[in-house]
Simulated assay, not measured.
Amino acid sequence: MNLEARKYQFIQELVKVEDESILEKLELVLKANQNDWFDKLSESEKNEIQIGLDQAEKGEFISHEDVMKRFSKWH
């Protein structure tokens, strides 16, 4: 079953719910899902992450394997 079909099936089941406590719990789940960890970061943190992503896209990074080789004496 694809995502759209699952959503439609969920909506059909949601319409049948008569217990308000169940609806409240579902609302909490949906609200919690909308709060992304990225949204809680400061602007400077978001900018630093974007810089890192831009560098990675340009190939300006060191692989994990190379870092582990370089620092193996401490590992």
Rank of each mutant, 00 (worst) to 15 (best):
M1E: 12
M1N: 09
N2A: 08
L3V: 14
R6Q: 11
K7S: 05
Q9W: 10
F10V: 06
F10L: 11
F10M: 12
F10C: 09
I11S: 02
Q12P: 01
Q12M: 13
E13F: 15
E13Y: 13
L14P: 05
L14H: 04
K16S: 12
V17I: 14
V17F: 07
E18N: 08
E18C: 03
D19W: 00
E20R: 00
E20L: 05
S21W: 04
L23Q: 08
L23W: 11
E24Q: 10
E24H: 08
E24S: 06
E24N: 09
K25F: 02
K25R: 07
K25D: 02
K25Y: 04
L26H: 02
E27F: 14
E27Q: 03
L28M: 10
L28W: 09
L28E: 10
V29R: 06
K31C: 01
K31G: 01
A32Y: 02
A32F: 01
A32Q: 04
N33F: 11
N33T: 11
Q34Y: 14
D36E: 08
D36H: 06
D36R: 08
F38W: 06
D39M: 05
D39L: 03
K40S: 13
L41T: 03
E43R: 04
E43G: 00
S44K: 05
S44M: 01
S44H: 02
E45Q: 10
K46F: 02
K46C: 04
K46M: 04
N47W: 00
N47Q: 10
N47P: 01
N47L: 09
N47M: 04
E48Q: 15
E48P: 07
E48H: 09
E48A: 15
I49W: 00
I49G: 00
Q50D: 11
Q50E: 15
G52K: 03
L53P: 05
L53C: 09
A56F: 15
A56W: 10
A56M: 13
E57A: 12
E57I: 10
E57R: 08
G59E: 04
G59P: 12
G59F: 02
E60C: 11
F61C: 03
I62S: 08
S63D: 03
S63C: 04
S63A: 05
H64C: 08
E65H: 05
D66N: 10
D66L: 12
D66R: 07
V67H: 01
V67F: 05
M68D: 15
R70K: 15
F71S: 09
S72E: 07
S72A: 15
K73H: 11
H75D: 08
H75S: 13
